[in-house]
Design a protein around this nucleic acid. Structure first.
Lengths: 198, 198
DNA sequence: TTTGTTATTGAACGACCGCTCAAAATTCTA
DNA sequence: TAGAATTTTGAGCGGTCGTTCAATAACAAA
């Protein structure tokens, strides 16, 4: 059972995720991945099975990181809504050098893949839905806290937040207009709290 | 100056656009395009220069069609805001069989392409900005009509509409939840008219 | 019909793709 | 330290990629 001294799987996943996030699934070649991870093809194929297998793990790695970041923002904020706003601001306005692309990797995968790559597309959809469920959970927490009216439609508001996040990230990539994005974030959290959302 | 009997350029562009829209730029091969258009490589290269050249023209073809559709929705609606809502509903809820993909081709291109394909990325950004300018023009028309308050921030509202459109289309591709999208369209046009947006 | 011009054809080029596998190196067991 | 098990290596397979171009066909002008 010799199982030591292998490459650091997390480190490899991190580099592969960065590359896929930057270039997309189809435009990233296995040789790009070999170079970035400093691994020979056999090692990659033994560990991940295929390029698709590696991409699937990269999607999970990315989603896991995002969930942890969201958790940190919620833990650090005074209010639940404030934590969500911090998460929005962090992803949309702070993510500069530590990110290869303005977009969400899951949204990018859902955009790039077509129905013939069902397994990867399904994985991305599942992970994005799980993140949306986190949003709903926090919306409900805010309702319980009295930060949101009791007749708020938590499903609707959580979906609206996710739609906004995805739309704003694409808008940012399209225009690079950070001031406009900052303005829209302000308006978004104004309206989410000021109105009855149910 | 023999210049007759050539293939129908619009028809070829329509088929190429469909294929790019369905599969994306990288995943569409020149042989796919040859088969779909029933042209041999030399004809395509003589007419469009390269795969990139054809894609660029496909982007323009798509944008032109969308602009015409928007114009039709505006002409057919009783009010300016009503026309915009018709456009949203048409693209998000009616586009089933006549469309290969839930997403906007321009947004899909901006998502897929990276900075190394600067020319195509720039073209997609320019065309998307032009469409956003149309939105702003109609928002200002609605202000002049009295459909929107005079202190509406037309830049902001037009950008919000574009962000929503892009976000909703991605959400639809991710979840296929048409009921949720319909609900969010209703809320969107409620809030755009009911609130002071400036 | 002849001639000059343009459009179409389809074979094929070199490059790169995802991936395999026998051989070599390394690590674990004893 | 000897032998078994595992991991790493890198050459290279068959296939597809975007693109080219000489040969052919179709056309307009004379």
């Amino acid at each position: 059972m010799a199982n030591t001294a292998k490459f650091n799987r997390q480190e490899v996943l991190q580099k592969a995720t960065w590359l896929f996030w930057q270039r997309g699934f189809h435009a990233t070649s296995t040789r790009d991945l070999q170079q970035a991870t400093n691994l020979r093809p056999g090692s990659i194929y033994a560990a991940f099975g295929s390029k698709s297998g590696l991409f699937k793990e990269a999607l999970r790695f990315y989603a896991q990181n995002r969930t942890e970041l969201l958790q940190q923002c919620m833990d650090g904020g005074k209010t639940t809504i404030g934590g969500l706003r911090t998460y929005f601001r962090h992803i949309l306005l702070d993510g500069d050098a530590d990110t290869p692309n303005e977009l969400c990797l899951l949204a990018k995968a859902i955009s790039e893949l077509d129905e013939s790559e069902e397994e990867l597309l399904g994985e991305a959809r599942t992970l994005l839905a799980a993140h949306g469920a986190k949003f709903r959970q926090y919306v409900e927490e805010a309702m319980a806290n009295g930060e949101l009216s009791e007749d708020t439609d938590s499903d609707l508001l959580a979906r609206q937040l996710q739609v906004q996040m995805i739309g704003l990230r694409t808008f940012l990539r399209a225009t690079a207009d950070r001031a406009a994005v900052e303005h829209m974030i302000l308006k978004l959290f104004d309206s989410a709290t000021a109105r009855t959302t149910g």
